[in-house]
Every structure is written in C-alpha cells, then in structure tokens.
Design a protein around this nucleic acid. Structure first.
Lengths: 261, 261
DNA sequence: CACGTCACCTGGCTCAAGCCAGTTTGACAC
DNA sequence: GTGTCAAACTGGCTTGAGCCAGGTGACGTG
C-alpha cells in the first residue's frame, strides 16, 4: 500500500451502479448499436472508482449480452441481430419445392441476409443419443452430415444430421453436399421415406467454450439445443438432426393441433 | 506497492488453468453434486495465485452453471436438476381430464417432485405484444393471470396468461384461482372456446437481474421464453400465455404432422 | 506516394492487500 | 442443559498498481 490512508470508501464505488448507469444510457438510446462506450479507464475516472471496478461493470453488461468487447479497440453496444424464425413449415412439401435454398436459405433471404452453408459428410457409428431416436442399435452404421449455416458470413446455427446407412447407401445422401432441387427431404422421399411427422425436443443452455469460439458467440448469449426427428408416413423415424442455434438471433415458431392425429 | 519487487510472474497464475483443473475434478466425479469445493483462499494458496485469480476461476465455473456460491458458506457443486418436459399433449383433453393438477402438476409428480402454484389475478389493459396475438386492440380490457410454478419449493417457471375481458367476464377466469376439475381450458370450453390449435413461439435468453432474483436462477443458466397462444375450433385466438422457464430444468417436446391441417 | 515504425490508445489479466457481510462453531456463563 | 457471543471461517467487493497484447494513426523515411 502506498500510504496507510484508511481508504475513504469511494463515493459510490459500486460496480452495479456503474453497470446500471451504462445500461440505462444504452436502453435510453444515448449509446446506439455499434457505438463505442467509454474505456475502462475513462469509466473508472468518471465514477471515481478503480479500473477493476469499471471492468466488473462491463463484465456484467457483457454477460447480459448488451455490449461486446474487442481487444485493443474498445467496448461496443451490440447490434440487436435480426431474428430468424423456424417452425413446422420448414418441413412442408410447399417449402420444399418453392426454393432451392432450403428452409434456412429462404428464411435468411426473407430477413435480407445472405445465406451460405458448409457441409462435411462422413460415415460414422450411431451414438446412443442418435440410436435411440432412430430406433436402431448403438454402433450401427450411419451417415453424419454436419452443416454450418451462415447469414452474412456469420455462423448462426449448426445442424448435424444422422441417418441409417442402409437408407442413404448409393444415394447423394451418403456423400454429396448437393441434394438437388428437392433438398434433403426430396432425397429421403425417393428412398420411400416421406417426412410426415416431426418430433422436436427443445432446450437451451450456455454454449461450451468450444461452441462459443467456433460460432463466434459473444458472452451472455445462450444457445438453443434442438433435437429434430424426421418420421415417415409409416411412423418410422428415418433421420435425426441435432441443431445448436444462437439464441439471440433464432426463434422457433410452431403451430399445431392439440389432439393426436 | 509494499516493495518494488518485480513480481516473479506466478508459476501458472492463470484463472483458466485453475478453472480447468476444477472442472476436470468435477466432471471426473472427484467432487460430486452438493460437495463443497475449496475456498477461494485455499485455491489461491494451492495454485500459488492471488485470491482474485482463484475467484475469477470460480466465476467462470459459475457462469457455466457447474457450481453455485453461497455467501458465508462456500462454493458447492450444482445438483444436476431433474428435467421437466412439456409439449403438445399438455393441452390435450385427455391430459385435462386425467388430473386435477394441470399439466405442470402432472409432470412434476412424474418427476417425483412436489408441485405448487401461486396465482395473482388482475384486470389489465392489453399491451401490444398481447393484443396482436389475441387479435384485439391495444388497451382493450383483459384479465391477467400470473402463475408461479414451484417444484419442491423451487420456482421453475412463471406463466402469465392474458385473455379478453369479454370472454372471461362473470366466470372464475376473471378472478378466481380455482379453475375446477377441468382446469383453465375447461373454463374456456364452457365459454365456447375449445382449445384446438396452439401456436408456440420459442426463444431463449439470459434472465434479467430481476427474474434471476425472483426465480432464484443461478449464474450461467438461461431461460426459455415462450409465447403460447390458444386457438379455438373457429381458428380464433382466445388466450395467450407468456412463459419464462429455467432452461436448466425444462425441456419442450413437440411432435406434430408436417403439413397444414 | 508507399511503407514502416513507434507512441499511444484499447481490453485482458494478475497481484496483494483490505473491509464488509453472512455462517458456523465452540467456549463460556448461567 | 441452554443460551449467548465472539472468533474464525466463508464469499462479495474494492483498491491501485503493473504487465501484456491487440489496434490505430501520425509521422518520417525511402
């Protein structure tokens, strides 16, 4: 300690107060999306607090997803990303034939964003998660199709599709990224599996560190974790897809009859 | 500074390293749910770091939802909460008549947890959010039924139901918590609105500070934000409910036909 | 004009110290 | 035995210092 001053107990020195002040200014529109907020050092001076305290206030706003810090550049108010909505209709035949882009591309364009998909296709063995949903034995041969979906160059969701190998064998499903004009469900149709019912299991959680890095998810943004199962007219599951979606830019939207079909 | 020692740059002094070490011990089962992990001071000593650094490591684990800190007592490994699943069936007539508890109570009991609901019923005016979903004018008279759902005494979700006043007038819906044996949808049925379709708009986000406090949501746990609309056989919406659910203990589970009914 | 380089910003992280407020525990008085 | 109260723990928060690394722009040199 420099001197033995009893530390005058700073006037307000509360990181929550600083956070609140900033939050208010942001929500009031004094700082707009993309604007830079004062630096940690400036905030500290302004509030008569230590830099660490200002830093803690900023950490709180980051956790809330209000701001985003860029090393060496500053802290900026987050853009409220545009929402992309997905629901039951993305699987309908109408959607399928109306667009070469698939449901993701169609929604992206509807939101004025440029879609782009990266695919990696491999053969694999069914993990228990997948096997139970497909009604097959764990370890059975499957195809694994990992798709990264980008809007305006930003990754917004990943979907990993699994299907039994005996269904996809000798079709583009087994090894090609190009699903033709009818998309992936057109290919399954051609093999006799018309998507008729879907099951969607939805939860949310914080991304793992790895997911946060690969999807460039800022602090304070959760992900939607969605297991989708495609079921054919014979009530047999033929495909499951595990989606992980940025929750700040994705909403799910379902309408359905209440009673059993 | 006490002296002008050049600070020997701690051996590892990385909060991420400490966090990783702890995380590994937790996932490996060395610390089990409910166990107390070493105190901030002990961790710091153990790793030859400053207490602040150990503290930062713990903060990371809290954000990840792995541990929970109790002031004055210590830091404990979180119990993995049991999941409650909700889906389309909770609105079905079968569910309605089978249980006096409603879908929440039924699911809680299925999970071996004791359900409990707190209700506050008021008359209000429709906010734009609500009005557009109900297809009425903003500001129109509505009933507002706020329900807090508890499992084993812990609040796990809130649902605020809104319905037009002209529908609920002179029924228990307008002012009573007791919905009778058929539950809330039984009451709507009696007024000519049989729930036939539902629309569910789902997203996820971090809880606000206030929500986190009222629902006792630990750090690092997001919430599922669900707008539910009840639609009758004439395709008219008669009720909307805004749910906020702890995402670490709630999953949504829908199965539905792909095509329009 | 192009290109480097360097000062000066930014946030990221750490340290060592200290005060405060909850919680537990055990010694001591009654 | 029962109650009380203080000591010794816990986490919560703050200070002010310092080093590091990324980013930017002015300035100077070729």
């Amino acid at each position: 300690m420099t001197t033995s001053t009893p530390r005058p107990r700073a006037s307000l020195g509360d990181y929550r107060a600083i956070a609140r002040a900033l939050r208010d200014e942001i929500t009031a529109g004094r700082y707009r999306p993309g604007d830079q907020i004062p630096s940690e050092r400036a905030l500290a001076a302004e509030h008569g607090a230590a830099r660490n305290t200002a830093r803690e206030a900023i950490a709180e706003l980051r956790r809330e997803g209000l701001v985003i810090a860029k090393h060496g550049r500053g802290v900026f108010v987050r853009d409220r990303p545009r929402w992309m909505r997905f629901g039951r209709r993305r699987y309908s035949a109408a959607m399928r034939s109306s667009s070469e882009l698939g449901p993701f591309g169609a929604e992206a364009i509807a939101q004025g964003r440029a879609p782009h998909v990266d695919s990696t296709i491999t053969r694999a063995e069914a993990a228990p998660d997948v096997a139970t949903r497909l009604g097959i034995e764990p370890g059975a041969a499957i195809v694994r199709r990992e798709n990264w979906y980008f809007a305006d160059g930003e990754p917004v969701q990943v979907g990993i599709t699994f299907a039994p190998w005996h269904i996809v064998e000798d079709t583009p499903l087994a090894d090609s990224a190009d699903m033709g004009p009818e998309g992936i469900y057109g290919q399954f149709s051609a093999r006799g599996h018309v998507i008729t019912y879907i099951r969607e299991e939805i939860s949310a959680r914080m991304p793992s560190r790895e997911e946060a890095e690969r999807m460039q998810i800022p602090d304070g943004v959760p992900v939607i974790d969605l297991w989708h199962t495609g079921i054919d007219a014979a009530r047999l599951p033929f495909e499951v897809t595990h989606f992980v979606m940025r929750a700040d830019s994705t909403a799910l939207d379902y309408d359905m009859p209440v009673e059993e079909q």
